[in-house]
Simulated assay, not measured.
Amino acid sequence: MSSDSGRIAQLFDGSTGDTTPLKSDSGTSVDWKSLVMATLGLFTTIIASNVAHLIDMVMSLFAIQPLQKYAEFLETIVSGLVTSPGNATDAAFAQTAAFVADKGLFAFPIALGIVVVMAYIVAEVRKRL
């Protein structure tokens, strides 16, 4: 068997020595064994390539695409959970900034008091959880 595989390799690179790849040693007739093995290898490669493509298509259709959709769904949920507190805090501070902006000289103490009260509320809520 190893001599056949070596012969196939020689068939493709033309390194069979004195003979041409598809001719017999005497050079008067076609080496049918080499020709059949090369043809069989070609058709086997074509069939295996198509089977691999079919497996790829089936895996993509029934495994990869549904998992990608599931991952996108989970990403939406997790990003919502992670960004919601930040968005709520930004909205609260934006309203507070608008409230404090026109207080003049007392803006800093009022803003500091609001921050301290908000921190106390957050601490109380966390303590009760």
Rank of each mutant, 00 (worst) to 15 (best):
F12Y: 13
Y70G: 03
D56Q: 09
A123F: 01
S26M: 04
I77R: 13
S29K: 14
S49Q: 02
S84P: 02
R7W: 09
S29G: 08
Y70I: 02
V51R: 09
A119V: 14
V51D: 02
A97K: 14
Y120L: 05
G17K: 08
S5R: 07
N50R: 02
S84F: 11
G80I: 02
I110V: 15
P66T: 03
A123Y: 07
D56K: 13
F99P: 02
A9R: 15
T89A: 13
F106R: 01
H53S: 07
A111G: 07
A101Y: 12
V30N: 05
S3H: 09
V122N: 01
L22S: 07
V125L: 02
D56R: 07
T83W: 06
L35R: 13
L129I: 08
Q95K: 07
G104Q: 00
L40Q: 11
V115P: 00
M118F: 14
T20F: 11
I121P: 00
G6S: 15
V117L: 14
A101R: 10
A52M: 07
D25T: 05
V100W: 06
Y120W: 01
A71G: 00
L129R: 04
V116N: 09
A98Q: 13
E72Y: 03
I114S: 10
S5M: 11
V125P: 00
T44Q: 07
S29E: 15
D56H: 05
L54W: 01
F73S: 12
S3C: 09
D18K: 14
S60M: 10
S26V: 14
T39P: 06
D13W: 08
I8S: 00
I121T: 05
G6P: 01
S24G: 14
K69E: 05
A71Y: 00
Q65L: 11
S84W: 08
L22I: 13
I110D: 02
L105T: 09
A94T: 15
P21I: 09
E72N: 02
A91L: 12
T83G: 05
A94N: 14
F73D: 09
S29T: 07
G113A: 09
D102R: 15
P66K: 06
A38I: 04
L81C: 12
R126Q: 02
A119R: 13
T96K: 10
A94Q: 13
L42G: 01
T16C: 15
K33V: 15
F108R: 10
E75K: 10
G104M: 01
A38F: 10
A101D: 12
S84C: 08
G80D: 10
D13T: 03
M118A: 14
L74S: 02
S79H: 08
E75V: 01
